[in-house]
Design a protein around this nucleic acid. Structure first.
Length: 154
DNA sequence: GCCAACGTTGGC
DNA sequence: GCCAACGTTGGC
């Protein structure tokens, strides 16, 4: 089992939106970055745990936890000309973009803010606080996951 | 809304 | 395959 962090803009899709979906499950689509795509296609597996991170909003930080319920499969929005995620250069035979399905697990009573995460001594490998902080799908080391989780539950 | 950092595109 | 121009991300 592995750990991840997925970014989302809560104005578009928040942890509350995930919790209120049917089955509390949602396809995590619209990822259009190759490094993130590689994680979704090859790394993220059913049973993995995911921090849901709210970006570009008032309270930036980790808002809760989700669980992966389906391994990577082609993101169908890339084939739909009506979709804002449409990619004319992709094809059914050779899909360029992937998504996984995630299911709500818990919402923290308060968001663990990025400003706090940055001050935590043990958090040094998380791409969020390093170069490449713009990555929207990133791995979280187990020790860092445990530390972040404990801080979020305080 | 600003702007720095970074990713992608395309001409050569 | 280099690299400048351009677009996007995302914290503040």
């Amino acid at each position: 089992m592995a750990y991840w962090l997925f970014k989302t803009e809560p104005d578009a899709f928040s942890i509350d939106d995930l919790a209120s979906r049917p089955e509390q499950t949602e396809p995590w689509d619209g990822v259009r970055n190759y490094q993130a795509r590689n994680f979704l296609r090859d790394g993220v597996k059913r049973g993995d745990k995911v921090f849901i991170y709210h970006s570009s909003c008032k309270l930036v930080g980790i808002a809760g936890v989700a669980e992966v319920v389906r391994d990577g499969y082609p993101d169908t929005t890339q084939f739909n000309p009506e979709s804002k995620y449409y990619d004319p250069k992709s094809s059914q035979d050779n899909p360029r973009w992937y998504r996984v399905d995630v299911k709500f697990v818990e919402k923290f009573s308060s968001v663990l803010p990025l400003s706090v995460i940055k001050t935590m001594d043990g958090i040094t490998e998380l791409p969020l606080v390093k170069k490449g902080g713009r990555l929207s799908i990133m791995p979280v080391e187990e020790a860092e996951w445990q530390q972040l989780y404990a801080a979020a539950k305080q």
